[in-house]
Structure formats: structure tokens, C-alpha cells
């Protein structure tokens, strides 16, 4: 891809993102579409997020318990698991799963609508495709990913608890006390801001890639792949930048 095409793509992406956001503030509102998308993105992803998060929490707890027991610090397992999950791993893991399930779905659905002339049909009928298709998806991702992250965090902590108590033979009371200790504003805020940004990034990138689909089945495959790859890269980059900013804003010394 040459520089001119890249700049043009970026410009189109920014424009679509802005129009998608503005669509939520201007009539007509497509409430039914938002609910449908929230159901698909939220309720539909519930099980997979819980499952993945549970095992992430278990693996993390296992690794930490093994390492900390060597140092005689097993009682800190809950604390380290709690901080890692709430501030970092929970939001990122949920966002990556969300990208794989919802982001790819958005890109392929919109791409298939483009190829099947359904988007052109909307334009012919005088319906703004951004408002009708992009805004509901952006809103649903923006609202549902934080909720799913919260549920995923809880599942991870539960997984960590299982390993700490039944495998590492620690006290359940100590584990939950340590977790409660890390549930302070700074940590919770730090972990709660990220999913909103990730939700916006995943939905806007996926919608853009879907709507710019060209060239039949191969084009659809390519746009779906690009949506997932670009979303994953942006999640990781944004996570680093957000972590840096939040640590600074919340007064943590590095």
C-alpha cells in the first residue's frame, strides 16, 4: 500500500468514526438496531468471555502461586492476581475475545451487505448507512465491552480463587481479603476506562473495514482479516498508551 492510499484510508476512517459518533446525537435514532446489536455483542459474547477469563485467571494464579511460594510469599497471590486482572489482563483479554467474535462479525456482515448491494439500497432509500449500520454497532460495543470486562474480571478472580485454594492450598479468606485490598478507586478506574476505548476502536475499525470491502469473497476475507488484525494491534498499542497516561494521571510512580 502506498503512502497516498494509506493517508486516504486513515482520513476515511476518521471521518467514519466521527460520523458514527455524531449519529448517536442526531435524529433519526435507531433504538431497535442498538438493542439488537447489544444483544449480539453482549449476551452473545457472555459465555465465551466468562470461559476465557476463567482460564486466564486460573493460569495466572497458577503461575504466581508457583513463583511466590518459592519466595514464601504465597499469601500475596490474591493481591497480584487482582491487580493484574483488574488493571491490565481483564480488559485486554475481553477486548481480544470481543474482536475475534464481534469485530470479525461486524466486518463480515457489513462487507457482505456492501457486496450484496444492501448498503447501496439503503442509500437509494435515503437512509444514511452510517447512522443505520455503524452508529448502533459503535454504541453497542462502547456499552457492552465494559460490562463484559467486568463480568470477565469476576470470572478471572474466581478462577484465581479456585487455584489458590484448591491447588495451592491457600486460605480462601486471605485470597479474597487481598483482592478486596486492591479494589481501590485507582485500580478500578484504570481497568474501567480501557474497555470503553477498546470498544470504540474495535467497532469503528471493524465497521470501516466492512464498509470498504471490495472484490467478492476474497475481498470479504481480506476485509475481515484486516479488521481483526488492525483491531488487535490497536488494542495493544492503545493499552500501552492508556496505561502510561493513567499511571501518570492517577499519581503512580514508575
Amino acid at each position: 500500500m502506498n503512502a497516498k492510499a494509506l493517508i486516504s484510508d486513515l482520513q476515511d476512517y476518521y471521518l467514519l468514526s466521527i460520523q458514527g459518533i455524531l449519529g448517536a446525537l442526531q435524529r433519526p435514532f435507531y433504538g431497535k438496531d442498538v438493542i439488537e446489536q447489544m444483544d449480539y455483542a453482549g449476551a452473545g459474547s457472555f459465555f465465551i468471555i466468562v470461559l476465557v477469563s476463567l482460564f486466564v485467571g486460573m493460569a495466572l494464579s497458577l503461575q504466581l502461586a508457583a513463583e511466590l511460594s518459592v519466595l514464601g510469599l504465597k499469601m500475596y497471590t490474591g493481591k497480584v492476581v487482582g491487580i493484574s486482572i483488574i488493571r491490565e489482563i481483564g480488559p485486554v483479554a475481553a477486548a481480544l475475545v470481543f474482536t475475534g467474535r464481534v469485530g470479525s462479525g461486524m466486518a463480515s456482515e457489513l462487507g457482505s451487505m456492501v457486496l450484496g448491494h444492501q448498503v447501496d439500497t439503503l442509500r437509494v432509500f435515503g437512509v444514511d448507512p452510517v447512522k443505520k449500520l455503524v452508529t448502533p454497532r459503535m454504541l453497542s460495543a462502547f456499552l457492552m465491552l465494559p460490562a463484559l470486562t467486568l463480568i470477565g474480571d469476576a470470572a478471572s478472580l474466581l478462577g484465581g480463587y479456585y487455584i489458590a485454594v484448591f491447588v495451592s492450598h491457600q486460605s480462601g479468606y486471605v485470597y479474597w481479603s487481598s483482592v478486596r485490598e486492591v479494589l481501590i478507586f485507582e485500580n478500578v478506574f484504570s481497568g474501567s476506562v480501557k474497555p470503553f476505548i477498546f470498544g470504540f476502536l474495535i467497532s469503528s475499525i471493524s465497521c470501516y473495514m466492512g464498509l470498504s470491502t471490495k472484490g467478492g469473497a476474497i475481498g470479504l476475507r481480506s476485509s475481515t482479516t484486516r479488521a481483526v488484525v488492525a483491531s488487535i494491534i490497536m488494542i495493544i498499542v492503545a493499552d500501552f498508551l492508556l496505561t502510561r497516561i493513567l499511571l501518570y494521571v492517577l499519581g503512580f510512580s514508575v
Binding site: 457482505s112 451487505m113 450484496g116 448491494h117 444492501q118 447501496d120 439500497t121
Partner: peptide, 8 residues
């Protein structure tokens, strides 16, 4: 449109 382009 070709093939109708009905909303799936």
C-alpha cells in the same frame, strides 16, 4: 439490484 439486494 441484481439478485434483489433484500435485507438478510
Amino acid at each position: 439490484f441484481q439478485e434483489g439486494a433484500l435485507f438478510d
